[in-house]
Design a protein around this nucleic acid. Structure first.
Lengths: 209, 209
DNA sequence: TACTGATTGTTAAAGGAGTGACAGGATGAA
DNA sequence: TTCATCCTGTCACTCCTTTAACAATCAGTA
């Protein structure tokens, strides 16, 4: 209902706010002002208030935002009140590292499936999860009701794999492969190729070397 | 000289264009139109022409852009005509995966230093590189003339490590730690916490589960 | 209760970014 | 050479995002 009118860029900031709020919670802070939160995440206070006001008035004049309650609201907005089952496609270096990463579980995600096409890998266990054969992907995804995928395969097969994922009902892809994936409008993709990000950074560096 | 007036968002698109152009080069295509390139990277043709025109007229009316020459120009703009030495700070799962990743070398970067504070790791060799003690960081960075860092340490120590890096002359940080780093204006940071990206994606998913 | 200080939600204005349209140059064919 | 076609670079316009300002409201104190 609310979805269509709210800019993507606002949505991208919400998880960052959530991150900072969780830190405040750990430190035992009960209330935070837009100015203080803005300082933590490097966003202007006015912008934070405007972003949050898209979803309703969560703050209290004179004091600010209740940390716990704002966390709850943001989690609801971002649909983080459930644990999302996630598949990792491609268990190379990066896929294995993500499998071992302990940061997903507490943040609303659980890696419940990891698959590869390498017969040496299929059947082995990494971080408590048995690597599945990509040939079973359709059934695995259906049985586990997975709609979120992390794609860590080589660029050469990334589009093929993506087409499979889309046809099997995947709706969100976190893409580590170095290319722009073609997907239907109903599927959401975020790219995080480290090389692209580094190449953005070097633009700003002096080259007198 | 050109730097100040060009929007960050334009700069962020350039490496993506470069990625697609390299693919065209591998496929042997000599010339590309803004429309075709736009289709590859999911950007409008007008936007590509406008982005490129910030830096000069690289195209030819009637035919389009010469692939090789546009690659050369973009590489120059992004300062990729040199190999940038890079340090990886924190050799946990993710740091090790990035160390083993072969995708940096051909794209303008070389991991020349990896360090950690874990005595069990220091001195071991991963992917041909001997892990250095973080206590030697100041000298290592100076000797190797490193200005680009990849940060893969736990959130708890990320800001401390960042302060060290900044004081030792690091100017660009690719931050995998789940927090917003505080740095001086002269230092550039890009964040790629996978959890933040996933949490952005789930906003767009139906929650009837 | 009345007053002071603080902070939100909202509105209007300012500032940036994206789009559409087209003049003008390049190419190739007749 | 002339003509028809193609595609860039750019300008004006529209749309989107951010900022600044302030009325409304809350909490604490006297």
């Amino acid at each position: 209902m609310e979805k269509q009118n709210i800019p993507d860029i606002v949505i991208e900031r919400l998880p960052v706010y959530l991150q900072a709020l969780n830190q405040l919670l750990r430190e035992g802070q009960a209330v935070v002002s837009s100015a203080e939160l803005g300082h933590l995440v490097d966003v202007s206070a006015a912008q934070i208030r405007k972003d949050l006001s898209y979803f309703g008035g969560f703050g209290k004049q004179g004091s600010g935002y209740n940390v716990i309650s704002l966390i709850d609201n943001l989690r609801a907005i971002l649909h983080l009140n459930q644990i999302w089952p996630v598949v990792i496609i491609g268990v190379g270096n990066l896929g294995q590292a993500l499998l071992r990463y302990q940061g997903f579980a507490r943040k609303g995600f659980e890696i419940v499936l990891a698959c590869d096409n390498n017969p040496d890998l299929v059947g082995t266990t990494i971080s408590g999860l048995k690597i599945s054969d990509v040939r079973n992907l359709a059934e695995d995804l259906r049985l586990l009701n997975i709609r979120v995928a992390i794609l860590t395969v080589p660029a050469e097969c990334a589009q093929n794999v993506t087409d499979m994922l889309v046809s099997y009902g995947i709706k969100a892809i976190l893409n580590y492969a170095p290319l722009v994936l073609k997907v239907p409008e109903s599927v959401h993709v975020i790219n995080i190729d480290p090389v692209v990000k580094l190449q953005t950074l070097t633009y700003y560096l002096e080259t007198e070397d």
